[in-house]
Write a protein that binds this DNA or RNA. Sequence first.
DNA 1: GCAATACCCGAGTATTTTAGTCAACTATTA
DNA 2: TAATAGTTGACTAAAATACTCGGGTATTGC
Lengths: 156, 156
Amino acid sequence: MRLTTKGRYAVTAMLDLALHIDQGPVSLADISERQGISLSYLEQLFAKLRRADLVCSVRGPGGGYRLSREGQDIYVAQVIDAVNESVDATKCKGAGGCQQGVTCLTHHLWQDLSEQIHTFLDGISLADLVARREVQNVADRQDGQQDNKIAVDTIL
Amino acid sequence: MRLTTKGRYAVTAMLDLALHIDQGPVSLADISERQGISLSYLEQLFAKLRRADLVCSVRGPGGGYRLSREGQDIYVAQVIDAVNESVDATKCKGAGGCQQGVTCLTHHLWQDLSEQIHTFLDGISLADLVARREVQNVADRQDGQQDNKIAVDTIL
DNA sequence: GCAATACCCGAGTATTTTAGTCAACTATTA
DNA sequence: TAATAGTTGACTAAAATACTCGGGTATTGC
């Protein structure tokens, strides 16, 4: 699991899509203008998102992209995985100078952590994020934050 | 919040430190050998970890690094932040072509998410990770995974 | 049918980050 | 005082990121 600006671009673009889905297909040019991401870069990202079956395209005038399914069925982890590919795990892929010793121990620890982050993001859908923002004006995040300990304990 | 191999190196090294803390100061040469990270690269990482007050150093023969406080008081998020610096937020830092419109909306959504990941990692200490691994032999992760939904709901 | 729209695709490139090297230096201990 | 080990800074190779360019192809509306 990696979290880079590339993944952020992808999630941002997907959120833009989710927010404008009622207006029919959304063109990359629109997303580019709204989100300040270069058109050609978006094309590259959406090629990957399409291969991952997260979006589908409509060609021709008035065309654009559309979520391939409902926002509540698309998870943040899927979006990030789609553009990041090759998660290359732990450098020592079973083989290598990584025996039974401490090396494998800490490597596994990191892998566990990485898995937990992935699982965490796999539980957040685009719809969750959109809903959260829409609701936010009402309950302006007086909550959250301190519930964290409980959540971590539950996952851990 | 960014999650790169750099952060993984830092967390791995800190875990190595946490695991060998009973043996007095741990030299970077030891960590380098055990974890397969180049010595000079470790030096750069530990310079940052030291500046962030996560480790303290002991010079001279038999010297090395030591956690600056107990493992349960050092959180994964702190380690990653220390080596990653400049989280550069959302490109539009208040100013720029980011008005009241949709741009700010989705940017904020991403920022919220980023904050949540940060909060999540801020609840996991080095001691948690070490303990988890030690317990793992007993309850070999038949659990986990499906508890995720609950956890996310709690945070969200 | 034809022009405009907008996706599709591959090659190329500038910038940044990552990962690592090298060399000189300082503090500490045996 | 020699060996150890942290401290610092400059420098570099390789990879990832972010972006450009130039051509495609499918679709629609006039």
